[in-house]
Write a protein that binds this DNA or RNA. Structure first.
Lengths: 224, 224
DNA sequence: GGTATAATCAAGCAATCACTTGACTACTTG
DNA sequence: CAAGTAGTCAAGTGATTGCTTGATTATACC
């Protein structure tokens, strides 16, 4: 009665979900896919891996149920299968931030010294936006902006920021945001802006956190 | 600037948290530890593994930051390092329930047909308890009851239930609970009680979910 | 129909993992 | 200090994993 075999099989099924996120590259994929759906070759470039390897990782994620795909012409677009996946990814980062010893060091090595960079909370940003005295920059790659962004934000991918510095309004403070708490783009944008003498801060968290909180978002209509 | 190496290292650190839960046996350990701290030999028995293997799994969990240990005499007690770990475990079960194809089949194979078994929500149980017309049975192993249980519940480990059937009050309905939504104990208890003609149901979820919701709990004082 | 592009598949290699067995260490009790 | 109990350590084995390379499939465009 209530065999150990059935119990083991059930818990193996649970752990298969964890196992698939037990690869840094697949975790990066989930982090990018939390911004919206993307085709394989773009995902490969984002995570700096070969297309073949990225494809296999994506199929692994799909077999485990975390992502789904759809074909459009020659491209295959992958997306997270639901919001619970993004919540799981957040729970993982949360545990790591609290209990993984060297995480702070690694985050600083990648993101720079975050204690020097003051951030705006979601509530603070909403207030400033309705007061109309900030300009909000979405510094993620453009496809991510297309599939969803903070309502009222302007798309200035980090790569283009240098070229577009002159066009920024200089009467309002700049707030940059990107993929989430461990995304570099916003940090580098703020640093670049400040070097130019433009007052800038970053939003705490990123687009997925904003959307999950039910705050106003908008998206370009998806072309079918 | 913003090297791929540093990024990979950061995401590898995140995925190390997921990786450690990517073993069914470690997942079982976390599920048991969510009930409270336990010594190694008891944990080994709960998950049906050798002490040596269990010890290695626990150390793996500890190196990854998910659990901590303390020595008391000859025994070493392990516990979860914080509530975020229990939340992560819940997030994993959540994703699996929503997106893993064969999960329902596996859960039914282990737990029995859950559609036949109506459950009480936390709110319903609270109401019934304050009305005083239910008796609440904690059917987990006794050490788990000791380290924390629903306020007002009675400890009747599943193993002892058969012997203690006669002593149950027959004027009130019985509600059983155990470790969580995928724990068999409560289901088997309900089944056994009904065969004896005693009206019984199980609580939706288990002790950790009750405690996480901030509902009233009590515990035997821990002997140091 | 032929060519180009996007993605998958298949084979292979080094590295890691889960579990076993048997020896060893740490603490308690007599 | 000897004996007993709880837990860890170390070595070994078969299985799985992450990534590479080169070939193959599916769709779009000329």
């Amino acid at each position: 009665m209530s065999s150990r075999k059935a119990k083991d099989a059930l818990f193996d099924a649970f752990s298969s979900v964890a196992k698939v996120l037990g690869s840094g590259r697949r975790a990066e994929l989930v982090d990018v896919l939390a911004q919206g759906e993307r085709p394989v070759d773009e995902l490969a470039q984002e995570i700096g891996q070969s297309v073949a390897n990225t494809s296999q990782h994506l199929q692994h994620l799909q077999r485990s149920g975390l992502v789904r795909s759809r074909r459009q012409g020659t491209r295959i677009y992958y997306r997270l299968s639901g919001s619970s996946v993004a919540e799981l990814w957040a729970a993982i980062r949360n545990v790591a931030a609290e209990h993984v010893a060297e995480l702070d060091k690694l985050a600083t090595a990648y993101l720079g010294d975050r204690s020097a960079l003051d951030t705006l909370t979601q509530a603070e940003l909403r207030e400033r936006m309705s007061a109309g005295d900030v300009v909000v920059l979405d510094v993620r790659p453009e496809p991510e902006f297309q599939s969803g962004h903070i309502a009222g934000a302007v798309s200035v991918p980090l790569k283009d920021l240098g070229a577009r510095l002159r066009n920024l309004p200089d009467d309002r403070q700049v707030v940059a945001y990107c993929r989430g708490p461990y995304c570099v783009f916003a940090n580098e944008a703020v640093q670049m802006l400040r070097l130019e003498g433009i007052p800038a801060t970053r939003l705490e968290g990123g687009y997925p956190e904003w959307a999950a909180a039910g705050l106003p978002v908008e998206a370009a209509p998806r072309q079918e």
